[in-house]
Write a protein that binds this DNA or RNA. Structure first.
Lengths: 334, 334
DNA sequence: CTGTTAGCGCATTCAT
DNA sequence: ATGAATGCGCTAACAG
């Protein structure tokens, strides 16, 4: 591998001069600069970022910890997309680390990013609890921001949306359409997001004077397939309902498949709604009513929090109802 | 930041000893080791990977260049997922670099990864031509593998599937179902993948004694929305067709939306098929007939090629027909 | 404007 | 088994 020294020798200058012409902070005589550039071209020299970063004690990179198994779905691919875009916008390289399947591994992923000397770290936690995250933040010097968790002790180190209230917004819409027998496909157990959405569902029902019927509740695990299974389960119970709300769009689409298989029409026979506003929802038939989670804004906020600590704190973005075709007025409504 | 020296001092040993207990290659007296570990715990020391990598001249990382704007779709999210999984399996960290919007920027992304001293680099090119890729491979010492391009001069540095023949396989199925008026929604212009699929479409038609009708061909740009527009365009032309083949699943779903809007039923009125076997296809209604592109296998091969150069070369995986519900026998068939 | 020197933090000789 | 010294490739004073 050709180093800066090789270039310096070939150009008949010192390493420092090569470094200078490369970094352009200090003036170098045009003639000398030309010789150096020439030597660089001839040797095919490429600065070693490792050495550079070590010398500067600065890496120009931000890390993102998420569970690899999740990259796949539309939700996380959108997250990675925005993370990469906004990192780039701030001149930083995005480094991904896999949180895998346990709190310990999520910690290790953070450690890896820390040892890589990322300037800042973002984490979309799956296993680490709020208390553990608080502790990690407190024991670390590098800026750390948690995505999708509310950290009461660290308001400037988290971005999130209020899932419960988003769900209540959705429920208000559903109830307004005359639905009262609304089934709910919950997210994975122990998922804070899932629990908040479930809580919103139950709260909205009670506010409307309706006691949640356990027969109308079934648990999925976020995947489309789990939504499909949940839909079948719901149908098999033979309890009446006119509307299904799934805790994310993927599961909603799974539910739709189960309905279609049972010969039901959407939205004429069953109304359906989800959460997240995945791209597919817009093109699905019928187009899926959902709650838009402002991923772009969340990630942008997260990156700015962590890269521009002096920036004014931003308010939590809110989920927004997106009315499309999959929810119709309830025909049985009196 | 606490360094190895701080730990050494606190433990009353030399830096070398700390390094040794950390790397475990050389024996260290248990008692001393314990003291060192103790000191590490007390100081919260975390080895600096930069320094470590520089000293070892080795980074344990592999780079992946793709166009950020593409992260979003199911195709690329699946790619990133598998890339991360297989890198991990080989103990390597995946680093993403954005190829952005031009050949120059794709080159820069490679350069970045090179300067980061990734051990190996994978690229899913969008703008760089085969000739340029050949040249890049020849001028570089670090292993480089190109995904989704056939490099005749570098058989061991590329993984790909034969899109034309995959398309012919699909067409054979469609023709077999009695369709003769088959519309085609092509991919983005100048996309080799798109062109190969288009060529397969036309070739299959000619082989069946049917002259491709330009009225049945419309160009999209891979996105669902472009598929939707293409579908509307097709319908607006008022030329008869019984089947639409889209160059990827996203566009197929866009076409489906256009059909539904026009009051057409799938597959009774129009058969529909796509490519890539995106997850959604399985749950779409009707479930989408498609060609499975073995992303998992491709990426695994790519990583092994580049990390285990002595491994025996693998044969190109083939796209496989996945028959589902969106294609029905042509009722007009004589 | 340019060369010299001294680190950045760690791994690895070579001695002991 | 452990310590001292050297170097990885580069940047940043410090001189001149």
């Amino acid at each position: 591998m050709v180093t800066i020294l090789d270039v310096a020798r070939l150009a008949g200058v010192s390493k420092a001069t090569v470094s200078r012409t490369l970094n352009g902070k200090v003036f170098v005589r045009e003639e000398v600069k030309a010789r150096v550039l020439q030597a660089i071209a001839e040797t095919g020299y490429r600065p070693n970022q490792l050495a550079r970063n070590l010398a500067n004690n600065k890496t120009n990179s931000v890390g993102l910890v998420i569970t690899n198994g999740l990259y796949n779905g539309p939700f996380f691919s959108s997250m990675i997309y925005h993370a990469a875009t906004h990192s780039e916008r701030h001149g930083r390289q995005l480094v991904l680390a896999d949180g895998k399947h346990s709190a310990r591994e999520e910690r290790e992923a953070i450690d890896l990013l820390l040892s890589l000397r990322c300037e800042a770290i973002m984490i979309y936690p799956k296993y680490l609890t709020v208390a553990e995250l608080d502790e990690i933040i407190e024991h670390n010097k590098t800026p750390l921001v948690v995505i999708n968790r509310e950290l009461e002790r660290h308001r400037s180190q988290c971005v999130f949306v209020d899932h419960q209230q988003s769900c209540e917004t959705m429920m208000a819409h559903l109830l307004e359409q005359g639905h009262t027998r609304i089934a709910f496909v919950a997210g994975a157990e122990a998922s804070p997001t899932g629990e908040r959405r479930l809580a919103g569902y139950q709260q909205a029902l009670r506010n409307a004077g309706i006691e949640p019927d356990p027969q109308l509740l079934v648990r999925g695990s976020w995947s489309t397939d789990s939504g499909y299974q949940a839909g079948r389960e719901l149908l098999a119970r033979k309890v009446p309902f006119t509307c299904v709300l799934a805790a994310n769009d993927d599961m909603a689409i799974g539910v739709a498949k189960a309905c279609y298989e049972a010969g039901l029409r959407l939205p004429q026979d069953i109304s359906l709604a989800g959460f997240d506003d995945a791209d597919i929802g817009k093109y699905y038939h019928p187009a899926l009513t959902t709650i838009h989670v402002p991923m772009d804004e969340m990630i942008r906020n997260a990156i700015e929090m962590v890269l521009l600590p002096e920036a004014s704190p931003v308010s939590a973005p809110r989920g927004e109802l997106v009315r499309r075709e999959s929810v119709a007025a309830c025909k049985n409504a009196h």
